[in-house]
Design a protein around this nucleic acid. Structure first.
Length: 565
RNA sequence: CGGGGCGUGGCGCAGUCUGGUAGCGCACUCGGCUGGGGGCCGAGCGGUCGCUGGUUCAAAUCCAGUCGCCCCGACCA
C-alpha cells in the first residue's frame, strides 16, 4: 500500500543553495535523501527503494556468475590492517574500544575476507570461489562532495575472487566483466568500461566503469574507434605542432628577462607554446632528482610518470628546485641538466625547440632532443582532445563518475595474510585474488545526472522508486476518485509497483511532484477523462501521452510500462 | 592541507558595514473561497540570531576563540 497521503515524500521547491551537482539538488528536492553532516546522508523511503532496486540488479548478476553472498562487519581489528600494511592510510577511520584495543572501520573488506579464506580453504579442491557482500564502507575522505557522489559512508557491493593461479584469476576477472556489463546495462545507464590505474591497491590490472555526467570527478578519454581509458592512464599520439621554428645547427641563447611561464616565453620569442620544452623538476625516493621534460602545450601526468618510471615520483617543491636543479623555476632546461632527464615521447623527433638555459632570464632556441641532450624516453603526458588513439580514432575527453571498478590483486593480500592451498602435489601455493566494487549510490546519482530535465528526475525503469505514479484528481467522493481507487487495486494486484497520489492537494502540485520524482509512467485520473471513459497516460521521459480506456487501463498500462527505457 | 564563502523560526533569505523593540517569502495550523500544472483571502503557531568568552548602559550587529557547513584546489583503493 503506497498512498502518498500516508507516505513520507518531502518534496521541496528550492534546492539547497550550497548544492552544485544536479543529482544533489534533485535528490533533495524530490524527497529522496537528506544530509546529516559532511559526507553523511540519509536515504528517505523512496530513495532507499531506488538503492534496493540497484542492489537487487547487482545481486542477481553476481549470483549468476556463481557469487556467494555473505556479510562481514564494518568494525574490524586493527591488527589485520597492520598485517597488510594498510593501517597507516589516512582515509582509514581508527578507534579504540573501552579496553583500549585498536579497531578500524572498514573502508573495504580484503583484509577480513582473505583472513577467513586463509582459514577455511585448505585444498585446490576448495577453489575457485567468488564471495561478495553489500556492506557499509567508512572512509575519512579529504573532501566529501556533490551530495551522494562522494560520501564518507556508503554501501558497496564488493566481491572477491579466489583462484589457484593467474589463469584462474583471469577467468574470475572475465566473469566479472560480463556481470558488470550486464549490471550497468540493466540499470539503464550510459556507461564505459575503461582502462584504469591500479593505484595503491597494487596489482596486475584494472578497469573502471564510468558513467559520463557533468558532475563526474573523473575524466575519460574516448575515441570513435572504441578506445576508452581514464585520463590517468590514457595514451595516444599527440597532434603535431603548427608553426614549429626552423632547426638550428646548434642552440642559441636568447635573453628572456622575467619570462617564466610557457605563455610568456612563447610570446616573447614569437613561437607556438608547442615549440617549448616544459621542464618539470621531479623528486623520486627511488631514483633521486629527475628533470621531466615534455612539450610546452602538454601537461605532465604524475600517475603515468610513476607508472612509466616504475618508481615513486612527485613534483619538486619550490625550495628544493634551486638546490637540486641549479636554476630558478621558469629557466630550467634539459640542455646541460645537472640531473638525469626523462623525456615525454611526444618530444621525439622535434627540432627547433625552445628550452630554459639553466640560467636566470635566458632560454635556448634551436634545441633538438637527442642531439643537445640525452634522455630516457617515456610516455607521461596527459592525453588531450584531438589526439589520435592507436586505432586511429580522434580522442575526446568527457567528465564521468566512477560507478564500479575491477582489480586483479594477485597475491597482494594472500601473502601477508597467509591464504594458501595445497595443490595436487601437496605443495603449498598462494591464492590469487581479484576484487570488484560497485557503489549503488553512484549508480543512483549517475542515473539522476544523466536523465534529469527541467522538471526533475527521469528514472530508468529498472531502478525507479515506483514503476507507475498514479495521480487522482478531484476530492474524496467524486467519481474520478472511485475510478482511481479501483485502478490502483487492479494495478497492484497485477504486480505493478504503484505510488498513488491520493492527497487533497491541487492538481498542479501533484503534477509537479510526479515530474520531480520521475517515475517512468504517470497515470492521471480526472473528471475530464472519466467522463470520456478514459484515463491519461504520460511517459516521463519524452512526455508522450496516450489515452487508455478505463476498462482496460490496468492491462494497457502494464503493456506500456514494459516498453519504457 | 592551502584558498574563498556561509551559519538568523522547518526551508530560502533580509537585517551586521553605522550597536538601541528580530523581519520577509515559503511551509505549517484554523476558517472560507477554489479545483487539470506549485491558486486566493483572512486569522494564527513558531526564533536564547551556531557555541563560548570579551567590549559596552545596551550585542544578531564590534573583538577573540571555537564548532559546523559549502565551493575551488591538493588528495582520493
Amino acid at each position: 500500500m503506497t498512498r502518498l497521503s500516508s507516505y513520507l515524500l518531502p518534496t521541496v521547491k528550492e534546492a539547497p543553495t550550497d548544492a552544485e551537482a544536479l543529482s544533489h539538488k534533485l535528490l533533495v528536492r524530490a524527497g529522496l535523501a537528506r544530509q546529516l553532516g559532511t559526507g553523511m546522508w540519509t536515504y528517505l523511503p523512496a530513495g532507499w527503494r531506488v538503492h534496493r532496486k540497484v542492489e537487487q540488479v547487482i545481486r542477481e548478476e553476481i549470483d549468476a556468475i556463481g557469487g556467494l553472498e555473505l556479510l562481514m562487519p564494518v568494525l574490524q581489528p586493527a591488527e589485520l590492517w597492520r598485517t597488510t600494511g594498510r593501517y597507516d592510510i589516512d582515509e582509514l577511520f581508527k578507534l579504540k574500544d573501552r579496553k583500549g584495543a585498536d579497531l578500524v572501520l572498514g573502508m573495504t573488506h580484503e583484509e577480513p575476507l582473505t583472513w577467513h579464506v586463509a582459514r577455511e580453504v585448505r585444498s585446490y579442491r576448495d577453489l575457485p570461489l567468488i564471495l561478495y557482500h553489500f556492506q557499509t564502507k567508512e572512509r575519512d575522505e579529504p573532501r566529501p562532495r556533490a551530495g551522494l557522489l562522494r560520501t564518507r559512508e556508503f554501501v558497496m557491493k564488493d566481491s572477491y575472487t579466489f583462484d589457484r593461479d593467474a589463469e584462474g584469476l583471469e577467468h574470475g576477472y572475465q566473469l566479472h566483466i560480463r556481470a558488470y556489463d550486464r549490471i550497468f546495462e540493466r540499470c539503464g545507464l550510459e556507461w564505459y568500461r575503461v582502462e584504469s590505474d591500479v593505484g595503491m591497491m597494487g596489482g596486475l590490472g584494472a578497469h573502471e566503469y564510468m558513467a559520463p555526467c557533468a558532475a563526474g570527478e573523473n575524466e575519460v578519454a574516448l575515441s570513435g574507434a572504441g578506445y576508452a581509458a581514464n585520463v590517468e592512464v590514457a595514451s595516444a599520439a599527440a597532434a603535431a605542432v603548427e608553426g614549429l621554428p626552423e632547426p638550428l645547427a646548434a642552440p642559441e641563447t636568447e635573453a628572456t628577462p622575467g619570462a617564466r611561464t610557457i605563455e610568456e616565453v612563447a610570446g616573447v620569442l614569437g613561437v607556438p607554446t608547442g615549440a617549448l620544452i616544459k621542464a618539470m623538476p621531479v623528486v623520486s625516493k627511488a631514483r633521486g632528482p629527475l628533470l621531466a621534460v615534455l612539450r610546452g602545450d602538454h601537461r605532465l601526468n604524475e600517475i603515468k610518470l610513476r607508472n612509466a618510471l616504475g618508481a615513486d615520483a612527485r613534483l619538486a617543491r619550490e625550495e628544493e628546485i634551486a638546490e637540486l636543479f641549479g636554476a630558478p623555476p621558469g629557466f630550467i632546461g634539459p640542455v646541460g641538466s645537472r640531473v638525469p632527464v626523462v623525456a615525454d615521447e611526444a618530444l621525439h623527433g622535434l627540432h627547433g625547440l625552445v628550452a630554459g638555459a639553466n640560467r636566470p632570464d635566458e632560454h635556448l632556441r634551436g634545441v633538438e632532443p637527442g642531439r643537445d641532450f640525452e634522455a630516457e624516453w617515456l610516455d607521461f603526458r596527459s592525453v588531450e582532445a584531438g589526439d589520435t588513439c592507436a586505432s586511429g580514432g580522434t580522442i575526446r575527453i568527457e567528465p564521468a563518475i566512477e560507478v564500479g571498478n575491477i582489480f586483479k590483486l594477485g597475491t597482494r593480500y594472500s601473502e601477508p595474510l597467509g591464504a594458501t592451498y595445497l595443490d595436487e602435489s601437496g605443495d603449498e601455493q598462494l591464492i590469487w585474488m581479484g576484487s570488484y566494487g560497485i557503489g549503488p549510490a553512484r549508480i543512483l546519482a549517475a542515473a539522476v545526472e544523466q536523465y534529469a530535465d527541467e522538471q526533475g528526475i527521469s528514472w530508468p525503469r529498472a531502478i525507479a522508486p515506483f514503476g507507475t505514479h498514479l495521480v487522482a484528481l478531484g476530492g474524496e467522493g467524486e467519481p474520478a476518485r472511485a475510478v482511481a481507487d479501483r485502478l490502483y487495486d487492479e494495478l497492484t494486484k497485477g504486480g505493478a509497483e504503484v505510488l498513488y497520489d491520493d492527497r487533497e492537494v491541487r492538481p498542479g502540485e501533484k503534477f509537479a511532484d510526479a515530474d520531480l520524482l520521475g517515475c517512468p509512467l504517470r497515470l492521471t485520473v480526472g473528471k475530464r477523462g472519466v467522463e470520456a471513459g478514459e484515463i491519461e497516460a504520460q511517459v516521463r521521459r519524452g512526455g508522450a501521452r496516450s489515452a487508455l480506456p478505463i476498462d482496460s487501463a490496468a492491462h494497457d498500462a502494464r503493456e506500456l510500462w514494459r516498453e519504457l527505457p
